[in-house]
Simulated scan of single mutants.
Amino acid sequence: MIYIVTALKPEAQAFVDKYKLKKSKLQNYTLFTNTDIRLIISGIGVDNARLATQTLIDNFDITKEDIYLNVGICAAPQQHKIGDLLKIGAVMYHNSLYTFSADKHTLTCKDEAAAIQHDTPVDMESFGFYEAVVHNPAIEKFHILKVVSDHFAPHTITKENTKSLLFNVIHDINRVLQRHI
């Protein structure tokens, strides 16, 4: 099973459309599913991502084949083009670095939207997802994948653009997953 955590419905919508996921509820969360995918919408922020990810972990049996995936948009420095898919290998949160894979990008997780230039890409959920999956020894495979949505200009992000950005990289996300299935 592939478990996907997104913060926003527009981030989820590309997966819902592509994989014909059906809408349901899991506790207070919106859940979209088919026979291979369970996608939960966490809401914005570290705590929301942690709680939504933990809800998936608590409500479904984990197997060694399962893959947990945090997918969404992020702000990034100018060297990254809008629409670039970034495979994250480390998360910086409150000045602590958490490295979990050989993927080359470090993502800074902030508690508010990043409107000031940073040296790394920035999101608001990755650490919460990371914290939930890393503390569960049954989870062997997880990834954080982010799509560059802006260059520290959060006011430019729209629902339509967010869905489009994710839909444009959905085949690349699939390739990442296929290597681990």
Rank of each mutant, 00 (worst) to 15 (best):
N70R: 01
N70T: 07
N70G: 08
N70I: 00
N70D: 10
V71G: 08
V71W: 02
V71D: 05
V71A: 09
G72M: 00
G72E: 00
G72L: 02
G72A: 05
I73P: 03
I73M: 03
I73F: 01
I73Y: 00
C74H: 00
C74V: 01
A75W: 02
A75P: 04
A75T: 05
A75F: 04
A76S: 05
A76L: 02
A76T: 01
A76Y: 00
P77M: 05
P77E: 06
Q78I: 11
Q78S: 12
Q78V: 13
Q79G: 05
Q79M: 10
Q79F: 12
Q79D: 11
H80E: 01
H80T: 02
H80W: 04
H80C: 00
K81S: 14
K81N: 13
K81L: 07
K81C: 10
K81D: 10
I82C: 07
I82L: 09
I82V: 12
I82P: 05
G83H: 05
G83K: 01
G83T: 01
G83N: 04
D84C: 02
D84H: 02
D84F: 00
L85S: 02
L86V: 03
L86G: 02
I88T: 01
I88H: 04
G89A: 07
G89R: 03
G89N: 06
A90S: 14
A90G: 10
A90E: 06
A90K: 09
V91H: 03
V91P: 03
V91F: 07
V91W: 01
M92I: 14
M92H: 11
M92S: 13
M92G: 06
M92D: 12
Y93L: 08
Y93G: 07
H94P: 08
H94W: 09
H94S: 13
N95L: 07
N95H: 13
S96P: 08
S96M: 13
S96R: 14
S96W: 08
S96Q: 15
L97D: 09
L97M: 12
Y98C: 05
Y98I: 08
Y98A: 09
Y98L: 09
T99I: 13
F100V: 01
F100M: 06
F100W: 08
S101T: 11
S101F: 08
S101A: 08
A102W: 08
A102R: 15
A102E: 15
A102S: 15
D103L: 08
D103M: 07
K104V: 12
K104W: 11
K104M: 12
K104H: 13
K104E: 15
K104N: 15
K104P: 13
K104S: 15
K104I: 12
H105E: 15
T106P: 06
T106C: 10
T106Y: 01
T106R: 05
T108A: 10
T108C: 09
T108D: 06
C109I: 04
C109G: 07
C109Y: 02
C109E: 02
K110Y: 11
K110H: 13
D111K: 13
D111W: 09
D111H: 10
D111T: 15
D111E: 14
E112L: 13
E112R: 13
A114K: 05
A114Q: 05
A115N: 15
